[in-house]
Amino acid sequence: MRTTAQLAEIWVYLSASPLLGLTVTLLAYQGAYWLYKRANFHPLANPVLLAVVALVLLLALTGTPYPTYFDGAQFVHFLLGPATVALAIPLYTQLPKLRAMAGPLLAALVVGSLTATVSAVAIGRLFGASEASLLSLAPKSVTTPIAMGIAERIGGLPSLTAVLVITTGILGAVSARFIYQALGIADHAVRGFAIGVASHGIGTARAFQVSEQAGAFSGLAMGLNALLTALLVPLLIPMLQRWLG
């Protein structure tokens, strides 16, 4: 029989090792995904949202600081880099479709990308967000590593941007179906592309669960918007600051 003191020692040992953070991340995600599947992939049962809520509660209850958790979870986080590079492959697979629809797609991309940045900063400003928050909001529609890189360059808070990006992704994944129903948008290529522009990887993950075509176009939009936003936002910010005073 182990005594309470021995159990406490095991806890102290485990909570200082990266094993625990990594394992609970995988467990929380798989639990969340199981629920999502049980809910017939309903957009409101988003697995990222469920996993994050479960983990925040767990860390708060055990009094574990985020950096301790992240020591383990960083191994999952690290894969975002190679996953971003891997987007080249679905992008390449879509090359014929991309060529055929090139004009309309590029025009929609530019309009969508500008809408995402300008409306985020303008609405935030209208409701009195601080300057650091506004700069962190600007790249919120693109995938995390890119958005964090942009935030760093323009003087935002990269870790706040990560949270805003993920919230944007979840919001898009949760709301897209209802927006499309209201506007009568049925084409899965259009549906996928719009969610990809607005809510990056989490939107893309959601689109793949709806249909292969929606997923492919969402991945395409996400990759293109990442490139465009990285180029546009550093140029747009000084203009927006002057315009918004």
Partner: peptide, 23 residues
């Protein structure tokens, strides 16, 4: 309030505008 308004407003607007322009 500003963060929630910005995220919800901008996300819904971006999805709607992009989809309408592309269609």
């Amino acid at each position: 309030l500003p963060l929630a308004a910005s995220l919800v407003g901008s996300t819904v607007l971006t999805i709607a505008v992009t989809a309408l322009v592309l269609r």
